[in-house]
């Protein structure tokens, strides 16, 4: 089979130290995005297990599969979980969820957990869209904006680009930074136009690293304009898959004049973590109400 340059690494983990049977509140968040799906299981507010995989063509199946993978080998079943929240683009298609919450609120909450309460501005660079979110010290949204029209500057756009350039997606960032001089950004980050433009640049004799630099820089600028609208206050952190792309992150940091916080967890998990935390809050509330 030909190499698939877009393919990023799926992953799963569970804590060897936590005995979930002894814990009080078990909740899960399932984030079904257009490109990737995550399930995070939390016990008493700590991450116990997670899985991160590509979304299939069928959302309910993707939700079931990612949950099954997260549970694998833990002895836990879906019925042991007190509350499950679905989020993301496909959140209405999580058949076993007790409730859905939007990805905006979940990413805000998840970022607060991942980066700590000092975070005030969150940029989520997901598979299908980008969101700029301002949050308070509890992880509650105070202002948000997303670009509802164009899928540019997203994980899907990056996948298409990696494939086109024949560069493994995990290497795009590093290769794009391996340049002597920063080229002008490609004029469009729209997947379709950027593709044509990139092909043109390659034909004109540009090396791959330079074309990648021009693309990463265009993406960075595009999300910069989103952030500018809601106003950036530090601390600033990024969630979603593109947070792993240094070529975009470094250029964005430069434009903002700010350094993004270093993530303690896989940035793709933020939405599912936030969802699981919402679940914990709801369980505690209902127990208190008796």
């Amino acid at each position: 089979m030909a190499q698939e340059f877009w393919r990023w690494e799926e992953s799963r983990w569970n804590s060897p130290d936590i005995d979930w049977r002894k814990e009080d509140v078990i909740t899960a968040g399932v984030d079904v995005g257009s490109v990737s799906s995550q399930a995070v299981i939390m016990v008493d507010g700590e991450i116990y297990a997670y899985a991160n995989m590509r979304t299939g063509s069928d959302s309910p199946d993707s939700a079931r599969n990612v949950m099954k993978w997260a549970l694998e080998g833990t002895g836990m079943t879906v019925d042991d979980i007190h509350y499950i929240i679905g989020t993301g683009y496909g959140r209405v298609n999580v058949p076993f969820a007790h409730r859905t919450i939007t990805e905006i609120a979940c990413h805000a909450r998840g970022a607060n957990f991942m980066y700590g309460p000092t975070i005030k501005t969150v940029l989520d660079m997901g598979g299908q869209d980008c969101k700029a979110i301002r949050v308070d010290d509890k992880g509650k949204v105070t202002n948000f904006l997303m670009n509802d029209k164009c899928a540019a500057g997203t994980g899907r756009g990056m996948e298409v680009f990696a494939e086109l350039m024949g560069v493994p997606i995990g290497d795009v960032g590093d290769i794009s930074l391996d340049i002597d001089e920063e080229p002008d950004p490609v004029s469009s980050t729209c997947v379709v136009f950027a593709k044509t433009e990139a092909v043109g640049l390659l034909r004109a004799g540009w090396l791959k690293n330079k074309v990648l630099a021009a693309y990463c820089s265009a993406m960075a600028h595009r999300v910069y304009t989103l952030l500018e609208r809601i106003g950036v206050e530090k601390d600033f952190g990024i969630t979603g898959g593109i947070a792993k792309n240094k070529g975009v992150v470094k250029r964005l940091e430069k434009e903002l004049g700010l350094t993004a916080l270093t993530p303690k967890h896989d940035t793709q998990l933020a939405g599912a973590i936030g969802a699981a935390l919402f679940g914990k809050g709801l369980v505690e509330k209902s127990r208190k109400a008796g």
Partner: peptide, 18 residues
């Protein structure tokens, strides 16, 4: 306390949010 929600998009022609 509430939040400010911006619905819409930005494109080459401007910033269009309700």
């Amino acid at each position: 306390m509430g939040y400010i929600a911006n619905y819409g998009y930005a494109d080459g022609s401007g910033t269009w949010y309700v």
